[in-house]
Design a protein around this nucleic acid. Structure first.
Length: 386
DNA sequence: TATACCGGGTTCTGCCATTAAA
DNA sequence: TTTAATGGCAGAACCCGGTATA
C-alpha cells in the first residue's frame, strides 16, 4: 500500500494539464532510479514503521541548491512543495530567463514562493500574456514578480484572471487605471472574481444607502483613490466607515462626499489603527485647546491625518507649534502635515534665518516642493522685506 | 510672476488560517 | 491526510508639479 503514492504519481503523469511539457527537461534522468528505489524500499522493508509524511525529493533539493534557491526559506514557506515528485523548476527558470529575469531574481522568487515551480509552461505563458495586456514590457512584469512573487504565482486559474480583467474594465477603469492597480496591488488580480465583485457590490450599496445616485462612479472613485481597497475585506472597510461616521457625527451626504473624496485613502487601514489614531488625535487636539468642530474640520478636509502614526503626529505638531505656527493655521492648511518632521523643522529654521513671519505671511510656504521652496528662499534673501 | 489648490506618484509584502480538492 | 487555493491580516508618509487665480 505504501507504494501507492508513487504509482498514483506515475499514473497522474499522463493526465492532461500536468507538467508533461517540461518535466522531461528537468529531472527525467532521475525518475527511473527514483521509482525503482521507491518500489524496492516500499516492498522489502514493509515491517518498518511508515514515515508520517512523504520525504523531501532529494533531486529537487539538489536542483534548487544549484539554482541558488534558499532551500531553508522555501521549506519554511511551503514544505509540501519540496516533497513533490514532479516539479518544473528548470522550466520556470528558462521561462523567466527568456523574459529577462536574472538567476538571482529567479532564485529569490522560488525561495519566497516555492509553489511557483509547480506551474507548467502553458500556465506560465498564458498568465504572462494576460499580464502583458496591461503592461508594456516584460521588464515591468519581472520587477513585480521580484517584488511580490506570490501575486503572480499563487493561483493557476488563468480563467479567473481573465474574468477579473474583464470585470475591472467593465467598471470603467481604463488601461491606465488597470496598470496602476496591477502595479500597486497585484494581489487584486489573484483574488477570486467573486471576492472582487463582493467588494464592488458592497461599495455600491454604501453609495446608495448614503443617498448617492451614481454608485458606479462612486466605486470608480474609491478604487482610483485607494488601489488597495480590493485586497481588503468588506468587513474591515465597513467597520472603518461605521467608525468614521460615528466618531465624526457625519450626515449621510457628508460621509458620501468624504468617502468618494480624500477619505477613500484611509479606508483600508486596520480598524484598530484607525481607531487609535483618531483617539490620539482627539486627545492631542483637546489638550491644545481645540473643540470637537475643529477635529471634525481637520479630518474632513484632511483625512490623511489619521494615516499618520500617533508618535509621528505628536512630534510633527509640536515641531510646528514650537516654530511659531498656531493650531488655527494648521487647521486652515492641514496639508503641511504631509511633510516629514525633519523637512518641516529644516524649513522653519531656514525661514527664521531670513526673518519670515508666519503670522503675517501664512504657512503655505511649508507645503511646496523642494525646488519651489528653494526659489522662494532665494527671493526672500534678495528682497528681505518681501 | 507668485501663490493656492489639488491630484498624482511612490508603494504594499509576507505570513497565517481556513476551506476545498485530491 | 496532505496539498493547493484562497481570504485576511499587520504595518503605517512623503513629495512633486500642473494649472487656475490673484
Amino acid at each position: 500500500m505504501a507504494a501507492v503514492p508513487g504509482v498514483r504519481a506515475l499514473l497522474s503523469f499522463h493526465r492532461p494539464g500536468l507538467l508533461l511539457d517540461t518535466f522531461w527537461l528537468t529531472r527525467a534522468p532521475f525518475i527511473s532510479i527514483w521509482y525503482h528505489r521507491r518500489l524496492c524500499s516500499d516492498t522489502t522493508k514493509s515491517d518498518e514503521p511508515k514515515p508520517l509524511v512523504n520525504p523531501e525529493n532529494k533531486s529537487l533539493l539538489e536542483n534548487l541548491n544549484l539554482m541558488g534557491v534558499d532551500v531553508k526559506m522555501a521549506r519554511q514557506r511551503q514544505p509540501g512543495v519540496l516533497r513533490k515528485v514532479f516539479t518544473n523548476e528548470q522550466g520556470l527558470a528558462t521561462f523567466l530567463q527568456g523574459k529577462g529575469a536574472s538567476l538571482k531574481v529567479i532564485a529569490g522568487i522560488i525561495s519566497r514562493y516555492p509553489r511557483a515551480i509547480t506551474r507548467s509552461i502553458n500556465q506560465l505563458e498564458q498568465r504572462w500574456e494576460l499580464w502583458r495586456n496591461i503592461f508594456q514590457t516584460d521588464a515591468e512584469i519581472v520587477s513585480i514578480l521580484d517584488r511580490s512573487p506570490e501575486s503572480f504565482f499563487r493561483s493557476s486559474d488563468n480563467g479567473n484572471l481573465e474574468k477579473n480583467i474583464a470585470f475591472l474594465t467593465s467598471l470603467g477603469l481604463n488601461t491606465k487605471d488597470l496598470h496602476r492597480l496591477l502595479t500597486t496591488a497585484p494581489r487584486t488580480f489573484s483574488n477570486s472574481i467573486e471576492l472582487n465583485k463582493q467588494m464592488v457590490e458592497f461599495l455600491e450599496e454604501i453609495c446608495v444607502d448614503l443617498g448617492g445616485n451614481n454608485p458606479e462612479q462612486f466605486v470608480k472613485a474609491v478604487i482610483s483613490r485607494n488601489l488597495y481597497i480590493l485586497i481588503r475585506s468588506t468587513k474591515r472597510v465597513k467597520k472603518n466607515i461605521d467608525n468614521l461616521k460615528a466618531s465624526l457625527k457625519l450626515s449621510d451626504s457628508e460621509l458620501l462626499t468624504l468617502l468618494q473624496g480624500p477619505g477613500a485613502e484611509i479606508l483600508d487601514l486596520s480598524n484598530e489603527y484607525l481607531k487609535n489614531n483618531f483617539n490620539t488625535l482627539q486627545q492631542k487636539m483637546v489638550s491644545l485647546g481645540c473643540h470637537e468642530a475643529d477635529i471634525k474640520k481637520l479630518i474632513v478636509s484632511y483625512p490623511m491625518v489619521l494615516y499618520i502614526g500617533p508618535d509621528t503626529l505628536s512630534t510633527k505638531l509640536d515641531c510646528l507649534l514650537k516654530g511659531g505656527i498656531t493650531m488655527k493655521q494648521i487647521l486652515e492648511k492641514p496639508k503641511v502635515l504631509d511633510y516629514s518632521t525633519q523637512n518641516i523643522r529644516g524649513r522653519i529654521e531656514e525661514l527664521q534665518k531670513v526673518g519670515y513671519d508666519f503670522q503675517k505671511n501664512g504657512i503655505n510656504i511649508l507645503d511646496s516642493s523642494r525646488k519651489r521652496f528653494a526659489a522662494k528662499i532665494e527671493r526672500l534673501v534678495a528682497t528681505p522685506n518681501d
